[in-house]
């Protein structure tokens, strides 16, 4: 039976394999290659050999020679990377703790549980661009937030402060990231055997102690999974920036201080710049960061996660 199935199995796989070869495997290798090619032209496919220059230029180490004067392009290292790191290290821990807290609250009630579950899941099915525009209106200078608290702060408008703009961005990202995490934690909580809690009760353990000594350790696989996936998605943040600001700068277009790594990549790729080599180098850097972080988290959690 096994040999008979052999060639037929490949027929079943053929559509997926062909499409993945074209749109996953080839692009992956090609992008990696292009990031190391000097003066690559994607129309003709011509280049001037291998180089590390693209990475140097993206990271602001190597200058670009324009008419004899060396120019350092530091948009990536000054804005894109720091913003992405800020977004990641602010939104990931806060949203995980908040989601865990809300999930434990929902799990402890019986009446109206389904209703709360549905409400907290709502942001997942909505459009990040659309709700970003709503947030943008709420936090505009004459918007609801300012008028509620009698403020006149320009949170996110043209000429606003980078700090307030990033602050609102982080709030919005947390809002969009909560539902998925709450759902995963809830399904994890429901899988915990009631016996553990009964045993803890008999021993007279307090609620807080039960949470930290029983719930958290038994939920650790879900927490690890959520940590890894949310680090990855925070590093790739782009849609929330577009939804909220529709631009990459607070003051002038020449200082793109609202860049994220992915925003930078798409800007380099787009029709304005057409720097495929820089976009590729940026993507490879992103890939490397994500890989290192994922492996680090898996390594660090090896002893703490109970399966």
């Amino acid at each position: 039976m096994e040999t008979k199935n052999n060639w037929k199995a490949w027929l079943y796989l053929a559509p997926a394999l062909i499409l993945m070869a074209l749109f996953t495997f080839y692009p992956l290798i090609n992008t990696l290659l292009v990031s190391f090619l000097k003066n690559y032209n994607y129309v003709s496919g011509a280049s001037e050999g291998f180089t590390f220059e693209n990475f140097g230029i993206v990271l602001g180490i190597t200058p670009i020679q324009t008419g004899g004067t060396p120019v350092y392009v530091t948009n990536f290292i000054r804005y894109a990377l720091p913003n992405t790191l800020i977004i990641t290290f602010v939104t990931v821990p806060i949203s995980i703790i908040l989601a865990l807290f809300i999930a434990i609250l929902i799990n402890s009630i019986k009446v109206l549980r389904g209703l709360f579950q549905t409400i907290f899941f709502l942001p997942y099915v909505t459009n990040v661009i659309a709700v970003g525009m709503v947030f943008s209106l709420i936090f505009s200078t004459s918007g609801v937030f300012n008028s509620l608290f009698n403020l006149r702060i320009d949170w996110i408008g043209y000429g606003s402060n980078r700090v307030t703009a990033l602050f609102i961005l982080c709030i919005y990202i947390i809002w969009t990231q909560l539902p998925y995490k709450i759902l995963i934690f809830l399904s994890g909580l429901q899988g915990i055997d009631k016996q553990y809690y009964d045993a803890a009760k008999l021993d007279g353990a307090s609620k807080l102690k039960t949470t930290f000594k029983i719930t958290m350790p038994l939920l650790s696989p879900q927490i690890l999974y959520i940590m890894i996936t949310s680090f990855i998605s925070a590093f790739k943040e782009y849609n929330a920036v577009v939804g909220l600001f529709n631009r990459s700068y607070t003051g002038s277009p020449n200082t793109p201080d609202l860049y994220t790594v992915v925003y930078y990549i798409y800007d380099q790729l787009g029709t304005n710049n057409n720097n495929v080599s820089y976009a590729s180098a940026g993507a490879v850097v992103l890939f490397a960061i994500i890989l290192v972080f994922t492996l680090l988290q898996m390594w660090a959690s090896k002893k703490r996660v109970h399966y």
Partner: peptide, 22 residues
């Protein structure tokens, strides 16, 4: 197949863009 899920989509988007545009 599973390993490709780890790779950020931007790696593929760049070449897909140049392929489609060519």
């Amino acid at each position: 197949f599973l390993a490709t899920m780890m790779i950020p989509g931007e790696m593929m988007v760049i070449t897909n863009y140049t392929t489609m545009s060519n």
